[in-house]
Amino acid sequence: MFSIGICPTCDAGVLGLRKCGVCRRVVVLCDECDAAWIDHRVEARGTRGDETMPCPGCQADLWSGGATWATPAEIKATTWCAGPDVTLTESEPFEPRR
């Protein structure tokens, strides 16, 4: 999976790039505290998970419904990912157990 840093909310989770299974957007998702943002501007208000993890673009669950970690091609096709203030790190993915 590709990530862009550490979550500012919990100071621990990796901010992974997740592709929504419904709206197909690549969004930013903390895999520790279930917080998501529409893009790399994580100081902005995003969505917060409870029993599901709502996509900040369409509210669909980011842990199910065909959502996946974004591939290099999907990241390349996402405009904000190519910005100068985005540093990508690749690490082992954790596939959700649902």
Binding site: S3, I6, G13, D50, W63, S91, E92, P96, R97
Partner: peptide, 27 residues
């Protein structure tokens, strides 16, 4: 309750009973 990448918060917390040495960042 249900939730998290582990499917349930209980399982999510128990994921912190083991190290994940390859996990990016801290755990």
């Amino acid at each position: 309750t249900r939730g998290s990448q582990h499917g349930h918060r209980f399982a999510h917390v128990l994921a912190h009973a083991r190290d994940e040495p390859n996990r990016h960042g801290q755990h």
